[in-house]
């Protein structure tokens, strides 16, 4: 199995792909879920309600609180799929109860707008 489950859950939703890594503290508005950095490929878009697919988290350790705040403010992604695990995203999703998996083979087949069912209990993307 090439999908590693970090935080369990099952969700259905639309994929939003970020080519760049994400620094949640510096780049995402915790009140709206909008991406603030004009150099980021998701600039101006909101990650709320999407299944967010991005390589990995970078930068501030406080990004974990941003993920938790997004959930509290009802603008968090439904789930996250990363290529590489990192402690900030893993701990933020764990506390906020946002399903999180690390995908290898499946990662590249995830394209913007695709509707998927993520089963982060048995480790499948359908």
């Amino acid at each position: 199995m090439t999908i590693k489950i970090i935080v369990k859950g099952k969700v259905e939703g639309e994929v939003m792909v970020s080519k760049n890594p994400i620094n949640f503290l510096g780049e995402v508005d915790k009140k709206t879920g909008k991406v603030l950095d004009e150099r980021h490929d998701l600039f101006g878009k909101s990650i709320g309600g999407k299944i967010l697919v991005f390589p990995f988290g970078v930068g501030s350790s406080v990004g974990a609180y941003t993920i938790y705040s997004l959930k509290a403010n009802s603008c968090a992604p439904k789930a996250m799929i990363c290529k590489k695990p990192d402690i900030t995203v893993a701990s933020g999703c764990a506390l906020a109860n946002i399903p999180l998996v690390i995908a290898q083979k499946e990662y590249d087949s995830l394209v913007d707008g695709k509707k998927i069912f993520l089963d982060a209990e048995s480790g499948q993307i359908l």
Binding site: K31, S60, V62, A64, Y65, Y68, S69, K71, N73
Partner: peptide, 14 residues
Amino acid sequence: SGVNYNTIGDAGEE
């Protein structure tokens, strides 16, 4: 980390 109110917000404070 996560001490400045600007960084953690109301959700963090609560």
